[in-house]
Each structure stands twice: as structure tokens, then as C-alpha cells.
Amino acid sequence: MSNAVSALQGKTYAGFATVTEAGLQGMITLRGDLSSAKVKKAVKAAAGVDVPAQRRIVLKDGKGAGWMSPDELLILVPYAEARAAVDALSAALAGEHALVADVSDARAMFRVKGARADQVLMKLCPVDLPSLAEGELRRTRAAQVAAALWKSDRDEFTIVSFRSVASYVFGALETSARPGSEIS
């Protein structure tokens, strides 16, 4: 486990907003019937939150769950706990038609922080960011690749992409955050 490294190993860039690769993050894909009692119970146990509503993400104490599609959730846990969480979810859902997969290593996570953080994403994503609700998880594209994003704090957005394109996504965020390109 000590050998594990994230795609960009915490690379950071300070422009008019700060872009950081967030390092290793436990992520689990859960596909199943989100209305089933068994799924609800398993999610609560693993993520500490209820099954989120359509396009919502609920985070609490370093864990949480995001709505990815009508039959898919993204469960977030600390990286070191991902394996155990996968086992626990799988055990809890035994007999239920569901799929639990560890995707911690398939993805990369980024944080864009600063008063103008939204402007960085405005340049890359065809999303109406001012209308993005608190706790809304939006799946879209960032320039030419798939991405999911949400407002993770005041002045902070979190972006998730596939791992293989981590350096592309970081490059696009960095380019968009360069000083002088603030949108007035």
C-alpha cells in the first residue's frame, strides 16, 4: 500500500486560482437499484450518508456519496479504507443485483480554489456554473475529456477525471488559471 501513488502526486499550480491534484482518494462505483432498502442501508453504512437525490452529492466526515446516474453512485471514502469499504458493500449487497467496484485508482481528483475558481471551470466546461446548486454533482466535459465536478467549499470546486488524462486535465486547469486571464 505504501507503494501507491496518485496520477500526479499532488502537483499544484498557483495562478489566479490554485489548482491542486488532490492525491489518493478512495472511490467506489456502486451500481444497483438506488431505491432498494438493502442498497440504502449499505450506502449509509459505508459512506455515512443517505443515498443522494438526483445529481446531488452529500459529504460528511471525509466520506460521502454522489449521484452519478439513476442506477449508479460514487462512494467516497479515505483511500486506505476503500478496499474494506468495497468488501463491506459487497457483503451487504450479497444476493442483491448490484455491482460494487473499486475505482480509486481509475480516477484523478483536482481542487480549484480561490475567489475566482469558477472562472477556471467556466473556460473548460459547458456548464452554467452560477446556476450550479450547492451540493450539486455535475457530470460534463472539461475541454476534451469527461469530468465530474461540484462546489466542495466556499471558493472551491472539486473535479474528478479519468486517471490517464490527469496531466491533460491539470494542464487545462493550469492554462485557464493563468494570471491575466481573469474574466472581468
Binding site: 496520477a7 485508482d105 473556460k123 473548460l124 475541454a143 476534451q144 475529456v145 479519468f162 486517471r163 490517464s164 488524462v165 490527469a166 496531466s167 491533460y168 494542464g171 487545462a172 492554462t175 485557464s176
Partner: peptide
């Protein structure tokens, strides 16, 4: 737009 140089198009890299 931003698509030039290193980010002209996504380059997928293995671990």
C-alpha cells in the same frame, strides 16, 4: 482556444 501545445488534445498516459 486553449487547445495548443501540451493540451492540444488529451494524451492518455499509463501509470
Amino acid at each position: 482556444g486553449e487547445a495548443r501545445g501540451e493540451i492540444f488534445q488529451p494524451l492518455r498516459k499509463s501509470p
